[in-house]
Design a protein around this nucleic acid. Structure first.
Lengths: 260, 260
DNA sequence: CGTTAGGTTGACTTGATTCAACAACAGTGG
DNA sequence: CCACTGTTGTTGAATCAAGTCAACCTAACG
């Protein structure tokens, strides 16, 4: 396929799904043939709202976005942060109703894929459906880790864990160097991700800085020792399933070994 | 199919997946033809362990089970509670490695479905794969609500929310009357689900009881006014997606209306 | 009938919140 | 170019929700 040779706006997404299942050339071509509409979104705009039934699924092309919910008394909880290549509301297309909000974190380019096209795609390409399902499973795994992060880690450990997760995911996406990265969130957003107050975020970051666990320069965070940070966080990256290569088909070459 | 006529051990699971996609007779038959091995599990036993690669997926036939993770310093966080008809570790079969533990809450009957059979099933029955995927999406939605529950609700509201969720899910599964239900967890387990201490759980329950929001008799919880409890919890059941009927196929009768 | 798991309560401590003030900075418009 | 404005970040002091520690109670069970 010619489209695979030149840089394409859907490349990141395709590359991700290639890691989630054994796609063949037909699958890849179908992905590249998906219709979509590109939209530029300024920072902090709603992309989908709880209760909505959006017209299509949203794919992040560039920039970052996050999911969140707001409690009855107005407190916000951030649920996840998404990077280019992520679909942020498959739920909206496959479930009846969106159960959470999606908002742009930075300025974003997004692609809206009409629900009809997406549904057809997964009906006609079992491997792609499988890849997306696996993606949903990994999302679930990350949600679980976040439950632990807000439920059972104190602010300090929780913050370090969040920093480790960002680092690892941004690096895997080729968006961060080893030395550190641009933290894409305000302290208020960090607070809403950790289930604490912005004031406390500030104090925790200050203390981490004083201890030398991180070095801040504006929003750029340099980490002198990942080992030290991971230790404070109790960070184990298994839950990100970054190694998730495609599973062999039933009866395939690795199959015996796996069921043993 | 004869097997659909008499009570069958897989009925609950089949009924659930029927709600998740438009299954046809072939799909249903394939589900009933799944090979499995029944196992009796006493309360509080590990069913799967973090880091494991279990030989198959575990389906709960009777009893309750829960997922949990343990932090580096030994604190436990419960991630979800599962009822009969739920697969509790599809992750184990579709991802490389289990990222959390699964334990029986009460005495359980479980069915172990060999990974091979499951993989074949989803390769040969796109609708079943779709149903399971939708199920994974709903699991994800519940995880998100739990992030909110531990992150942004105080102990009192969190407890009420948990009580509402159990009530609603148990009722949907025909396992609770309107008046109340047998709370299946110890106070320590409730604490681990809410990210607080057992002592505090005790005090919160005592206060709710004193206020008349709940009436306790051993572990049986009677709720005089669901309305009142929902209000304290800020409970909105959307996230459970209980109405999740099967989505129409692309081009099906409801399709126009939906993409409009 | 002792043993153990689960539940209950009080006294004290602590991690995090609240409130309030102020500093740094970017963008905007006169 | 500078004053004005809003957002983000920073800090101290007081307060509070939840944690800790420790004692004791109750029911189930071999």
């Amino acid at each position: 396929m010619a489209s695979a040779k030149v840089a394409h706006i859907l490349d990141r997404m395709v590359r991700k799904f290639e890691m989630r299942a054994n796609l063949d050339e037909t699958d890849r071509a179908a992905l590249y043939r998906l219709p979509f509409e590109i939209r530029d979104v300024p920072a902090n705009r709603y992309i989908a709202r709880e209760g909505d039934r959006p017209p299509g699924a949203t794919l992040i092309i560039s920039g970052l976005a996050y999911r969140h919910k707001v409690t009855i008394d107005g407190a916000r909880q951030i649920l996840s942060v998404h990077i280019p290549g992520d679909f942020v509301d498959l739920e909206g297309s496959l479930l009846r109703i969106a159960d959470h909000n999606v908002q742009s974190l930075t300025q974003c380019e997004i692609a809206i894929v009409p629900r009809a096209a997406l549904v057809r795609l997964i009906e006609q390409h079992a491997k792609l459906a499988h890849a997306m399902w696996v993606d949903t499973l990994i999302d679930g795994s990350i949600f679980r880790e976040w439950i632990v992060n807000v439920g059972r880690r104190d602010a300090r450990a929780g913050m370090c864990h969040l920093l480790c997760e960002f680092a690892r995911r941004l690096k895997a996406a080729g968006m961060a160097e080893d030395g550190g990265y641009e933290l894409p969130m305000t302290q208020e957003q960090l607070a809403d991700a950790l289930g604490i107050t912005p004031v406390h975020v500030n104090r925790v970051l200050r203390d981490l800085d004083r201890e030398g666990l991180i070095v801040r320069n504006k929003r750029f965070v340099r980490v002198p020792s990942w080992e030290a940070l991971r230790k404070v966080a109790g960070f184990n990256e298994n839950y990100l399933h970054l190694d998730q290569a495609a599973l062999p088909a039933a009866g395939g070459p690795n199959y015996q070994q796996m069921s043993a």
